[in-house]
Design a protein around this nucleic acid. Sequence first.
DNA 1: GTCTATAATAGGATAGAC
DNA 2: GTCTATCCTATTATAGAC
Lengths: 195, 195
Amino acid sequence: MPKVTEAHREARRDEILAAAQRVFARNGYRGSSVPMIIKESGLSAGAIYSYFDGKEVLFRAVVERTLELKSSQFASDPDSDPRSPGELMQQILQGMQGEPILTIAPQIWAEAAVEPEIRAVLSQVFERLTSMLRTELTAWADTHPDRTGADPQAWAARITPVLFSAIPGFILQRLTLDDFDEQAYLDALIDTYPH
Amino acid sequence: MPKVTEAHREARRDEILAAAQRVFARNGYRGSSVPMIIKESGLSAGAIYSYFDGKEVLFRAVVERTLELKSSQFASDPDSDPRSPGELMQQILQGMQGEPILTIAPQIWAEAAVEPEIRAVLSQVFERLTSMLRTELTAWADTHPDRTGADPQAWAARITPVLFSAIPGFILQRLTLDDFDEQAYLDALIDTYPH
DNA sequence: GTCTATAATAGGATAGAC
DNA sequence: GTCTATCCTATTATAGAC
């Protein structure tokens, strides 16, 4: 199998997914059609279907692409100091300014509610993210026992699901409220959690 | 205009909406069709269309019905003591055990992301809910200045959007994670906020 | 007011040429 | 590998009878 062709296929695949992501971000999952994606990509029906089996598969691939991209941004740097709850959230949420993720995330949630396959993908991402949060928070609690109590691990495990909620909360309020104050939200987060 | 007919029309309308809500809760917005709702309601196409102009209108009505029903449950009782952040959330989240709202809420969010009319409805509900939260929190902070600082109103305003996030966070984790521990989540909420 | 039957359309998917 | 043309199904919406 020639390497050039393989690379070309991969590039084209990604090109299609990028187009699909734009369409889904503009119109939602329900509001998007394969013809729209075909038009956006500049390719033809035949080409699209030779890469992906249909709208559902296309969406799953976009979901994986989007979530993987996002969650990879938050990977912890083992060399740097452990981050406080507020710093963690600040870093995560600041990567979401005007991003397509703001529109696409709710589409994923809605599909996850009714499609087991999408739910499985989302579930994995949630688990990866919360696990990363828990690890970071444990490390931070280790160095701040005065603010988090005697058992850093227990504290981190308890707090993680609550802190995690700040992500969908941010996305939804950002999306919905015209006068949502992002900076105030971040400040309040820092204020709410030990720092 | 005879009163019986008016009441009958209203009852039938609600009957249709209840059926539509069940269908949307099972299949999501995208996965639901008008024929499904027709079947679920036990009525006919003609009957449904004589009450509602189509799937979109049907969904908007279901959204309004669902959100209004939910948010009315949280209205504060002026006679009782102001509730702490944890108590407030406990009361709100405990009304969501296995409810259709768990599936429908994400459908609403997804549509809100792309449909201005749905977004407007959701926005109003968010504003009503956060305003109610803010009022309750201010009242509580008034009686607990030692835990909330000198300015109860400022404290409540800052904390409200963060506390509010606990609602979508609960719904999403409840929906997605098989081993989500609701009680631990509520406990952690109480622990996180002043109490 | 409600029913059944059907028209109209859109969207998903494929076949076959280049 | 990609394109154009086309088929097919599902879904929306309506017309006309009861």
